[in-house]
Amino acid sequence: MIDDFLNGDLSDVEEAVRKAAATEIMPRYRQLAAHEIVEKSGPHDLVTVADRDAEEHLTASLTALLPGSVVVGEEAVHADPSVYEALHGDAPVWIVDPVDGTRQFVRGEPGFCTLVALAHRGEVLASWTYAPVLDEMATAIRGGGALLGGMPLRAGSPATGAALRVAMSHPDYTTPDQKQALLGLNVEGVHARDCGSAGLEYLGVARGELDAVAFSWENAWDHAAGLLLVTEAGGAHTTVAGEPFRIAGGNALPFTAARDAQTAERVRSLLAG
């Protein structure tokens, strides 16, 4: 079933992502009322009516495209953490972050996106990264490459001798051990900065505008789409323990994704101390 779906016309998935953004997200862009913004775990963890409605929209449209599939969405998991267990099941799973970069969206900035990935038994098979304000759509199929606006994406490699450009988790939102690991990037030859939307940072790596990311959290909706995008663009990823990142969880953190395997190993070694 899943192979037949992937071998078919996936333009309907792209259309579903675009329609959810056009219907539920963009009408609220720079139009949010105060009561439409709610704190979840704290002032830096926000949810809006656009997040919730877009996830509901995508849940209905994506499961209709692939009967028997289920959705693991950020807002559904917040309401019921047991939803996350679907990543360990046998059904195909749509992993959805309706608005990745909610803080940017709330501030009226363009740096947010909608992330959708299709996974089965822990393996990410396809992904869609859509930045609606920028009208940029990046897609990836496992073994089939990565595209941006229909054109091939290649991450390439950093220029020899150039300082590495790395986007990383904000140290304020890490455990003491993770904070210490991230401090390993504070060395000559590395220009590290706090990350924005994870999905757009991954896109930056896939298109060669950013050399690597280093993240200290493992929520599948933030990483599934981007990790496949980077991999299919020629990049690599690894946890601090030197293992591939597992979307179902249980990873040694932090982890990195980079433009090539050599860069990933360099960042991993810095994180490992």
Rank of each mutant, 00 (worst) to 15 (best):
D3R: 06
D4I: 08
F5Q: 00
D9V: 11
D9K: 09
D9C: 10
S11N: 10
D12Y: 02
V17Y: 06
K19N: 07
K19S: 13
A20I: 01
A22D: 13
T23M: 04
E24T: 09
E24V: 08
I25G: 11
P27V: 15
R28V: 00
Y29F: 15
Y29G: 14
Y29A: 15
L32A: 14
A34F: 00
A34N: 12
H35Q: 14
V38C: 01
K40I: 07
S41Y: 04
G42W: 07
D45C: 00
L46M: 04
T48K: 06
H57D: 11
T59M: 09
A60M: 07
S61I: 04
P67D: 05
P67V: 10
G68P: 05
S69P: 01
S69F: 01
V72D: 00
E74M: 06
A76C: 05
V77Y: 11
A79Q: 10
D80R: 15
V83P: 04
Y84G: 13
Y84L: 14
A86K: 01
A91Q: 07
P92Q: 01
W94H: 05
V99N: 14
Q104S: 15
F105P: 12
V106Q: 03
V106A: 01
P110Y: 09
P110I: 05
C113H: 12
T114R: 12
T114M: 11
E123T: 04
E123A: 06
W128S: 12
P132A: 03
T139G: 13
T139L: 12
A140W: 11
I141K: 14
I141D: 05
G144E: 04
G145L: 07
A146Q: 06
G150Y: 08
P152Q: 07
P152K: 05
L153D: 11
R154Y: 11
S157Q: 05
P158S: 13
T160H: 02
T160S: 15
R165A: 15
V166Y: 05
M168D: 02
P171L: 13
P171H: 13
D172R: 06
D177L: 09
D177N: 07
Q180M: 01
L183V: 01
N186M: 13
E188M: 03
G189I: 01
V190A: 08
V190W: 08
D194T: 11
S197F: 02
S197E: 08
S197Y: 00
A198D: 10
G199E: 03
G199C: 08
L200N: 07
Y202L: 06
A206D: 10
G208I: 13
E209I: 08
A212M: 03
A212W: 07
A214Y: 15
W217F: 14
D222C: 03
D222F: 12
V230G: 06
A233P: 00
A233F: 07
G235H: 11
T238V: 15
T239V: 10
T239N: 08
T239H: 03
A241S: 09
G242H: 00
E243I: 14
E243W: 09
F245R: 01
A248H: 01
A264M: 13
V267N: 00
L270K: 09
L271K: 12
G273K: 12
